[in-house]
Write a protein that binds this DNA or RNA. Sequence first.
DNA 1: TAATCATTCAAGCAAATGATTGATTGATAG
DNA 2: CTATCAATCAATCATTTGCTTGAATGATTA
Lengths: 219, 219
Amino acid sequence: MTKADPHTLLFTDLAEIARTLGHAHRLMLLEHIAQGERPVERLAELTDLTVANTSQHLQHLRRAGFVETRRDGKRVLYRLGNGPIEAVLTSLRGYAEHMRAEIRQLIADPINADGRHDSISRDELLERLLTGGITLLDVRSTEEYAFGHLPGALNIPADELERRLSELPRGREVVAYCRGPYCVLSTTAAALLEAKGFRVRRLAAGFPDWKAAGLTVEA
Amino acid sequence: MTKADPHTLLFTDLAEIARTLGHAHRLMLLEHIAQGERPVERLAELTDLTVANTSQHLQHLRRAGFVETRRDGKRVLYRLGNGPIEAVLTSLRGYAEHMRAEIRQLIADPINADGRHDSISRDELLERLLTGGITLLDVRSTEEYAFGHLPGALNIPADELERRLSELPRGREVVAYCRGPYCVLSTTAAALLEAKGFRVRRLAAGFPDWKAAGLTVEA
DNA sequence: TAATCATTCAAGCAAATGATTGATTGATAG
DNA sequence: CTATCAATCAATCATTTGCTTGAATGATTA
């Protein structure tokens, strides 16, 4: 019953590699290890897992060649393997990013219509940030904001915007942004602000684009 | 108990994508779909799965965005999604290739010693192939050979070599190759041939390198 | 409208996977 | 040599996954 077909075997290998990356805990461990060599116990506390569980995931990763070990006294230090791991992770992240955009587009498209609110380009925003006179508004969740945001941005999640309008200075143009080109949050926010008499534009590209362009991000 | 941490969520998404690719059957289906639109039933027979099982895997792939569907009469045609799928698969294949090379190195190294048999470079081999006078010998399995080999190569798997020696023309230099730089097959083959009075060299790099260099490959 | 065909759904089962616990191994320090 | 500490192993259990079977859906054709 064993398939000797080399074509099938290739797929089995490929699948095993993919499955190794198919668990959030292992991906988290990989990311920490990518920062530098770490002992098991440290990785366990970084990922909030038990030591035994961590050890098992690490061995799974090692079987697939994603990590390597060396002993240092009584500790075992894990480091990244030397294969083209980054390429795999990057392509995965790229794919995930694409999917998020697609989903957002599906949700946002009907609402988004076409350009009901003026948008502002990244370059123009940069210029306006320097010359001043605008309020930069991040309408994503507090969690997302905490994870990184545009410099000087004020954070009011879209669903809290109406009751927190007083926090926005009057008389200044507002530039709202959220997750990306098709994120619906900044659109609804812009509609609300306009109704309340603000002058408002949206940063079309959103946060990921800003970050990808290598511009500064505040934590 | 739900983790709202966006960092964790990102990893969960990534893991789900990876896990979708973590099954040989789904990878096989993807490959067939990559050739062009196909109805479920055709995919089922191509992959030798039941229709229901195929349908389930396809829906898994669709949830992850790897494939899309359209109806044509009573059939449902599956086609590739429009995300950067090829990038993901290519990086995976690249990683798998790297791992195979590493494993081979581990197995072969002790046997391989250092250059017990003369090796021949890719460029020199190319020249010799044109001027003639050598027998190019592929000592990998018949399956691997069938999947692609160097132009004009004769295929005698290493373990059949001894009893099929008569197939090799006498008086010509033999160049043996197998899977890669550390593949043990061509080393043992060279040892045998030398003992039998042949002049023999090994192609150090092996088949994958040849292919990677963009040189012609026969099916 | 009924009959047929391709696909999907739903239930059930076997196998694989992930997490926990407690025992075991390997290495240092007293 | 014993005590201690980090990591791994081994056994167990709950959950998830993959596959099969038979019924339900959606679209065509008679």
